[in-house]
């Protein structure tokens, strides 16, 4: 699989797919999309990079271990629920805030939860994909 063309295009493809996955993640708040599907797109981006250039460069590029990324995602998602506990609302109640600095863009706990889901999916699927690709070498 390591042809020159593939190896040349894979980094561009990967960065485009990661960008697209973040777009899908944020779009998912009110329209089709979301953390799960965004995470799958990002994980396939890393898998492509791994197929083209080997597993070690992917691990270097990710810097954190994929399992640690998944765990961070879990932490972020559970924390999104805990914010509503701290504010005396029922668990996982959606809470919004519109800070003036962002000029009307809302921040909310559902988005935070979705980012957590995104990280869990990216981390878990990437660690499986990388482990399988390592087995091939």
């Amino acid at each position: 699989m390591r042809t020159v063309i593939f190896r040349f295009t894979a980094p561009y493809l990967t960065s485009l797919m990661v960008l697209f996955s973040i777009f899908v993640l944020l779009r998912g708040h009110n329209e089709p999309g979301g953390g799960f599907i965004g995470g799958l797109i990002a994980a396939s981006a890393f898998a492509i990079y791994g197929i083209a250039c080997g597993v070690a460069p992917v691990r270097r590029a990710l810097y954190f271990h994929p399992m640690a990324i998944a765990a961070t995602g879990l932490l972020v998602s559970v924390s999104a629920g805990c914010i509503s506990i701290l504010l005396g609302r029922r668990f996982l109640t959606g809470l919004w805030t519109f800070p003036d600095v962002l000029g009307g863009i809302g921040l909310s706990t559902p988005v935070m939860f979705d980012i957590g889901v995104y990280l869990v999916v990216v981390g878990a699927i990437t660690s499986i994909a990388l482990a399988l690709e390592e087995g091939d070498d």
């Binding site: 271990h65 640690a68 879990l74 932490l75 559970v78």
Partner: peptide
Amino acid sequence: FLAGAVMLILR
């Protein structure tokens, strides 16, 4: 889940 996630990070 909080304890599990923290320990997974500190695996």
